[in-house]
Write a protein that binds this DNA or RNA. Structure first.
Lengths: 206, 206
DNA sequence: TCTATCATGTAACCAGTTACATGATTTT
DNA sequence: AAAATCATGTAACTGGTTACATGATAGA
């Protein structure tokens, strides 16, 4: 039940498959939809990556070129359609991503695992800055939600943003608590921070 | 204040810089430390990537080869040391990662943004499975913490795991609520789920 | 009409991964 | 002493990014 390796792993491909359920499109249109539609906030999008991904999908038989349309004086564009295999892959992939958590490596976690390399007072200060940044992010997300809701988008299509808010709030709580624990002398955290080169950073016996 | 592009971007490099503050090491030893020390849970680690990263760091002048040691009958190993520039980069990088939040693209967010491509009943079921998986992850993390704490590792060196727990708990709450909102007929979520091909998946006017 | 920006794509480069290689040590 | 595993590294491949190219439309 585990570890099905995707033929095409890039998440842009997932969006492409999903969009193509609505009918054939050419790559540029896919990119535009992704941006205009806000999904570029959730899926890393680089214009050139799209062509690569579409090519990979074609080679994997999940998508196929249908026609080349010459629209006005524009350069000719190839239009792609979802194949049956593509439709199958789309739902399998989505089910996998939703149905069980996958291990990932956010940058902040990496930083936390090496935080002892900085002096504790600096960390306290930096956590303060991060809390400001988080507050800013939060209000950005709120305004994205408000704006979209105002434009009549059903809440279902904003559920990623709600998830982001949830995670963000948890991070705020964590940062506050972390800061307190560094300051509080009874926790012994400052003691663990001895910049004795023999033990700092790397806790070898772990 | 924003957007400083790191000469070497791979987070493995951050760990290398941090470890080398403890004194010169050869790549293999760095890898061993990373694993044994548990930081491989936080930083994606592939044995071959280490050599690449060390090479990049060398070219960037953040690290330099010191000596080649022939230890017993083992193949000769090159030992690397941190340069002054490396020390500077280490703290700048760490400060940046801690001091402000960076935009990332977790897989689950991508999946959520396309969730309307699956039928609602399936999503309810899948969220149930995910909740099980999250519970499992949670107990794994707890046991990592317990074991390390039992071995005398100060809590400071486990702070990433606590962060993970915080985020994980937030995700649990989110999933439960999401599930409820799909089921609850008064939210109108099911209505937005009309599999009318004209509006499904892509909410164009957003 | 000159310039800026949009539309559409290609190509070259670099990073990261998988797979291979080989001598040393340990287990059976 | 054969088999397995550890220690240590190289090489080849592929995916993704940045940078380049070029015709079309629109604004000044």
């Amino acid at each position: 039940m585990a570890e099905e390796r995707r033929v095409v792993g890039n998440l842009l491909a997932l969006a492409v498959l999903a969009y193509l359920t609505q009918g054939p499109m050419h790559p540029y249109e896919l990119g535009r939809t992704l941006q205009h539609n806000g999904d570029a906030r959730s899926i890393k999008y680089r214009h050139a990556s799209l062509y690569m991904v579409v090519d990979q999908l074609t080679r994997a038989g999940l998508v196929e070129p249908t026609e080349s349309v010459k629209d006005g004086a524009r350069p000719e564009r190839t239009v792609y359609a979802l194949t049956e295999a593509g439709r199958v892959e789309l739902t399998a992939w989505l089910r996998d991503l939703l149905g069980r958590p996958h291990h990932e490596h956010p940058q902040f976690v990496a930083a936390l695992s090496l935080v002892a390399a900085l002096p504790p007072d600096d960390v306290v200060e930096l956590l303060g800055h991060r809390l400001d940044g988080l507050a800013e992010q939060r209000s950005e997300i709120e305004s994205v939600i408000a704006q979209a809701a105002g434009a009549g988008v059903p809440a279902l299509f904003l559920v990623e943003e709600e998830y982001r808010l949830a995670v963000l709030d948890a991070e705020v709580v964590f940062c506050r608590r972390f800061r307190e624990r560094i300051i509080d002398p009874t926790t012994g955290w400052r003691a663990a921070w001895t910049h004795d080169p023999a033990t700092a950073v790397v806790e070898v016996t772990r």
